[in-house]
């Protein structure tokens, strides 16, 4: 496996790029107090909407705050919301969908109807309701995001499992006496996880935006906390000053694309048929 990963780095440049970008943002977020040149929430009325310069690499916003510092700090919230939400929702959805699809019958029916109940609400409204009921803080917002996000994974996983479980290797394991849990974890999930993984990487960007939408509505992170999505939505008012919305937008964009590249690479790594090719 280690060898395969090394090989992947060497041959799949997009994967390498994705890893570099994502690691870059994560490290920046962790080291924010060290690397950011200014305090992200300190206002300076004299420096409102300054264009990018050497002193302020990404310029300043309408309160004269340094956008570069804010983008670095913003990663702390946005990345946490994006990565952790997708990770938890993905795991819940994978197992839920796999069990529903594999067991089938009434269990499947009940489990899927339950997940559809959540899907039937507009996701933003549902997240707002959960958030409003539980009180608004970072943890609760992420909890709401997970609640809204996991059914999609469950449905995807279920549909893949439905076809994977018909393969003869599943029956072969059954004839050998394998338990249902063993069949699920060793035969079915490894062969179905691929599409969930790819969806998860594309979903990271979505979740960051969703989080910022909630922040914009006053849930999640409240101003003046720097957060990428909120910075974009604030910056839209000043669309002739591109840097206000542009740089945080670029951060979301690079993060999402980077995660996508990683997803592609992972798919190749997990599929022995494709592993040969690189």
């Amino acid at each position: 496996m280690v060898r395969a990963v090394k090989k992947l780095f060497k041959s799949n440049y997009l994967f390498t790029l994705g890893v570099i970008v994502c690691v870059f943002w994560i490290v920046m977020a962790i080291l924010a107090p060290v690397v950011s040149p200014y305090d992200p929430i300190e206002q300076n009325a004299e420096l409102r909407l300054e264009a990018p310069s050497l002193a302020h690499l990404f310029g300043t916003d309408n309160f004269g705050r340094d956008i570069f510092s804010r983008v670095i700090y913003g990663g702390r919230y946005s990345l946490l919301a994006g990565l952790l939400t997708v990770f938890i929702a993905g795991i819940i959805g994978t197992f839920y969908g796999a069990i529903a699809g594999y067991v089938g019958g009434k269990v499947d029916n009940i489990m899927m109807r339950l997940s559809e109940m959540i899907l039937s609400f507009p996701s933003l409204i549902l997240a707002m309701i959960i958030n409003a009921v539980m009180g608004s803080n970072l943890f609760n917002t992420m909890f709401a995001l997970v609640i809204v996000a996991w059914p999609t994974y469950a449905r995807l996983m279920r549909s893949v499992v439905l076809s994977v479980k018909e393969n003869e290797y599943v029956e072969a394991a059954e004839v050998l006496g394998a338990s249902k849990i063993r069949i699920l974890t060793k035969e079915i999930i490894p062969n179905s996880i691929q599409s969930v993984l790819i969806m998860a990487t594309t979903d990271i960007g979505n979740q960051i935006l969703m989080f910022s939408t909630l922040s914009f509505l006053g849930l999640g992170s409240a101003p003046p906390t720097p957060e990428w999505g909120m910075m974009v939505s604030d910056g839209v008012e000043y669309f002739n000053k591109f840097w206000v919305a542009g740089f945080p937008g670029l951060a979301i964009f690079t993060m999402a694309v980077g995660a996508n590249f990683i997803g592609d690479g992972l798919r190749d790594l997990l599929d022995p048929k494709l592993r040969k090719q690189f």
Partner: peptide, 9 residues
């Protein structure tokens, strides 16, 4: 089916 009876992974 020999190709379906072996776990490809």
């Amino acid at each position: 089916d020999p190709s379906a009876c072996l776990n490809p992974r």
